[in-house]
Computed example of a mutant assay.
Amino acid sequence: MTTSTSTPPSAATDFILIRHGETDWNRELRFQGHIDIPLNDTGHEQARRLGLRLAGEPVDLFFCSDLLRAQQTAAPAAQQLALPVVTQAALREQHFGVVEGLRAEDIRELHPRAWEQWLEFREDHAMPEGESPLQFHARILGALGALATAHAGRRLLVVTHGGVLDMVWRTARGLGLNGPRQSDIPNAGINRIRIADPSDPAQIEILDWADTRHLADLPAQPNYDQRRHLKST
Rank of each mutant, 00 (worst) to 15 (best):
P201V: 06
A114K: 05
T23D: 01
A12D: 06
E93A: 07
G162R: 00
T3S: 13
A89P: 09
A152G: 10
A152E: 05
T23L: 08
T212G: 08
L134R: 13
A47T: 01
I16G: 00
L83M: 11
C64W: 06
P38Q: 06
V99Q: 05
Q94W: 06
R122T: 00
P38G: 01
L67N: 04
L81I: 12
N223M: 14
L61Y: 14
G163T: 01
T233G: 14
Q71A: 14
A82F: 12
L230Q: 11
W118N: 12
A89W: 12
T149F: 08
T3E: 14
R227Y: 10
W169Y: 13
A210D: 05
Q71M: 15
D197M: 07
P180S: 06
P84W: 06
D217S: 06
R27F: 10
P84V: 11
E205G: 09
E57P: 01
R227F: 09
A75Q: 15
S199Y: 12
V86T: 15
L81K: 12
V59Y: 08
L175N: 04
M127T: 03
T171K: 06
M127R: 03
Q221G: 14
P8H: 07
L83D: 03
Q135A: 14
T2L: 15
L39K: 02
G162A: 04
I37H: 07
L177P: 05
A104Q: 08
Q221C: 11
T233K: 13
D36H: 07
W118P: 02
F121D: 11
D211G: 11
E28W: 08
L165A: 03
Q79P: 07
L91P: 00
I37V: 15
I107T: 12
D14H: 13
H161F: 06
I185D: 02
R27P: 06
E45M: 01
E105A: 13
T23S: 08
L177K: 05
E22V: 11
I206R: 07
L218K: 07
T3P: 11
E123H: 08
E205M: 08
E45Y: 05
H34D: 07
G142F: 02
R139M: 04
R170C: 12
P128G: 04
A104P: 01
A143Q: 00
F96N: 10
L134W: 03
V164N: 09
L156Q: 04
P186Y: 00
Q117T: 13
A77L: 08
E105K: 09
R228V: 10
P180L: 02
G145C: 06
T13W: 02
R27M: 13
G142V: 03
L110Q: 15
H125T: 10
G179P: 02
W118G: 00
Q80V: 10
R139A: 01
I37T: 14
G56I: 09
P38E: 11
K231Q: 10
A11D: 13
R30A: 00
I195S: 01
R192I: 12
A55S: 14
D60V: 07
L61N: 09
M1V: 14
Q182R: 11
E120Q: 15
I18T: 03
L91R: 04
K231S: 13
G101W: 06
R213I: 09
D225K: 08
A210M: 07
Q32M: 15
D36Q: 03
H137V: 05
P180V: 02
